[in-house]
Amino acid sequence: MLGIEFIVLIPFLLKYRQLDPSSKWIFYYILCSLALSLGSVLIMQLYGNNMWFFNLMHFLQFVILSLFYLTCIKSPKLRYLILRLPIVMLCIFSVDFFRMEGMKFYDSISTGIKAALMIFYAISLFMQQLGDKELIEKSIYINSLPTFWYNSGIFLYFCSTILFSISLSLTQTQKVQASIPMNMVYVTYVIVYTVGSISMILFYVGLTKTKLLKYADH
C-alpha cells in the first residue's frame, strides 16, 4: 500500500490550504498510514519485530479518525461520545499493550474495538446524510459531498478487515501458525492491502469533490 498512499497524499498536500477541516483530518490519516508503512518496514529490518509500532500507530489512527467524525457528525449526543471515547480506548489499549497481548504481538482486542467503532461512526454519518433535510431542500446529492467518499473509504476498509484485526494475534502464536497454510495467510494480506488501496482511491475521489463544497463543512 505504500505506493498508493504516497500517490494519494500528493494531491492532498498540493491542495492543503484549500482543504476543509474534514479533508485535513483525512490528509493526516493518510500521512499517518504512510508513516506506518515506512516505519514498520524499517523497524522490522532493524529489530525483527514491529508489532509495538503497529499497535501505537493504530491507536493514533483511531484518534485522527475520531476527530474526522467529530467535524462531520451533528448529533450532540454522538459528538459527546466521539470526543470522550479516545480516552476510554487509551485505557483499553494500554491494558492490551502492556498486560494482555503485549508489545510483540498484534493487539487484536483494542484494534478490533477500534474497527467496530469506526463502522458505527461510518453508519451514523451515512444515516445523517441520507436523512438531512437541508441537503434534500437544496437538492444536493450525498455523493457530491467529500465526506461521503471519505466515509465510504473508511467504512469499506474496516468492514473488510475487522475479522482480520480480531484474529491476527491468534495466528501469531506458533501453535496456530503451524496449522494455517501459508497460502491462506498470503491471501488474507492481499485482501487487506487491496481493500486499503481502494479506500485510498475513494479518499482521492472525495478530494476531487472539495471544489464543489457549498454545504456547511461537508
Rank of each mutant, 00 (worst) to 15 (best):
F6H: 08
I201P: 00
Y16M: 05
K24I: 05
I191Q: 00
Y106N: 09
G102M: 07
L81M: 05
F54W: 12
T111N: 15
T71R: 15
K77R: 14
E101Q: 15
S110H: 12
Y150F: 13
I198T: 04
G131L: 08
P21G: 09
L90W: 01
L70E: 15
F53T: 08
L85I: 14
Y204Q: 11
C72T: 02
I166C: 07
T71N: 14
A35R: 06
Y204M: 08
F120V: 11
Q61N: 15
M182D: 15
Y121G: 03
M44C: 10
S179T: 15
L212N: 14
F105D: 09
L90R: 11
L135Q: 00
I166V: 05
P21W: 06
N50K: 07
I43Q: 07
R99K: 08
I109N: 12
S40L: 01
G102R: 03
N183S: 11
L135F: 11
L163T: 07
Q174R: 11
I4C: 11
L212E: 13
P11F: 14
L31Y: 04
S179Q: 14
I123G: 06
R79T: 10
M182A: 13
L31V: 01
F59D: 00
V192N: 04
L38N: 09
I92S: 03
K175I: 11
E134N: 13
A122S: 15
L212C: 06
Y193E: 08
L90E: 02
Y157C: 02
L163D: 07
S199V: 05
Y106A: 03
L46S: 12
I87E: 11
K133L: 13
Y204P: 04
Y29F: 14
K77I: 08
I4M: 13
S167D: 04
M182W: 08
L14T: 10
G3E: 14
F158V: 07
K133C: 00
T71L: 01
W52R: 09
D132F: 12
G102A: 04
Y47F: 14
M127C: 07
D96G: 01
L170T: 13
V8G: 15
K24Y: 07
K214I: 12
L135K: 05
D132Q: 08
I82K: 07
F59S: 03
A116F: 10
N49K: 02
T173Q: 03
S167M: 06
P86R: 07
E137I: 00
S110G: 01
S124C: 05
I140R: 05
L163S: 02
S94Y: 08
V190I: 13
R84N: 12
I154N: 02
M57K: 04
L46F: 15
Y157T: 02
E101A: 10
L130H: 07
L34K: 06
L67K: 15
F12E: 01
P146W: 06
L117D: 08
V190M: 07
T147D: 14
L81V: 05
L202T: 12
M51I: 07
N151T: 00
I201E: 00
Y186W: 12
L14Q: 10
H218Q: 09
M44Q: 14
L13R: 09
K209P: 05
V63H: 10
L117K: 09
I113T: 03
V63G: 11
L213E: 01
L31G: 13
G131K: 11
K15G: 02
